[in-house]
Simulated scan of single mutants.
Amino acid sequence: MIIGLSAGVFFGAFVLAESESWVGAAAAVLVLGPFYGIRVARRMGRVWPGAEDLDPADRAAVVRAARRGEDIGDARLAPAVVDYCNGLRTAREHDRLLLWVVLVLTGLAVALALIDTFSGSTREAWVSWLFVLFFLVELTWWPRRKARVMSRAEQAERLARVALRHRNSPGD
């Protein structure tokens, strides 16, 4: 819900800036917010099906520990950390397959920004170039951020595997 609302507000702000229409902005929030939120929830459900077996507090603890690269501190949640990290790897592989889509959309955004710069209003040109910037962030900063999260998750996974070995060792 948080991700969907954030995406809806983000795109609603773009619509408002582009068209100066509060109705269009509200429509973007009301349509794109739930669409994006549902999409993200379904995607995470596919790559991390074990999340359904956890209560919300445990699920949040697993995600927090994995994204920070920390020991989960609770051996019963160690398998969930390993499962979550596997899900992150799967999501990363899917993202790599869609890189060409982002490249095409970036090219289209640049073309639109150039058209708006030469034939549109100043406001339209600014919004179009902001959209180009959004895609450039997606192509440059965001992959580094995801790599950092994955590195931390792999550290948490190693710690979880150690906890599992200790939990499963004889004499405990």
Rank of each mutant, 00 (worst) to 15 (best):
M44G: 06
E93R: 14
E20H: 11
T122H: 12
M150Y: 09
V31T: 10
F10R: 10
T140Q: 02
T140F: 08
L133D: 01
E70R: 15
V102K: 12
A113K: 05
D74H: 13
T90Y: 08
R123M: 03
A156Q: 03
G73F: 04
Q155I: 06
V82G: 01
F10M: 11
L133T: 06
S6G: 15
F35Q: 13
F135V: 01
E20W: 12
C85W: 06
V102M: 13
V137F: 15
A25G: 07
D58T: 12
V63D: 06
L16D: 04
P56R: 13
R46E: 14
V82E: 00
A13S: 12
G8A: 08
F134W: 13
L159D: 04
E157Q: 14
S151P: 03
T90A: 15
A125P: 01
T106F: 11
E138L: 10
F10W: 12
H94N: 13
W141V: 08
R167T: 00
R46Q: 14
L139W: 12
W48G: 01
I115W: 09
A25K: 06
V40G: 06
S119T: 14
V29H: 04
A163S: 03
R64V: 00
A28Y: 07
L105N: 11
A7R: 03
E18N: 00
L97D: 12
W22N: 03
P143F: 03
V137I: 15
F11Y: 15
T140C: 04
R89N: 10
V31F: 11
M44P: 00
I2K: 14
W126G: 01
D116L: 01
F11R: 09
F134I: 06
Y84M: 09
P34F: 06
R148E: 05
R68I: 00
H94L: 11
G120I: 00
V132F: 02
L136P: 01
P143V: 03
L108M: 13
L103G: 01
A125T: 02
R76G: 08
W142Y: 13
W126R: 04
D116H: 03
L105V: 12
F134C: 09
L139T: 09
T140R: 09
P79C: 03
E52F: 04
R158P: 06
E70V: 09
L136G: 08
G24Y: 02
M150C: 12
A7W: 14
E20A: 14
L77M: 05
S19H: 08
G171Q: 01
A153C: 06
Y84D: 05
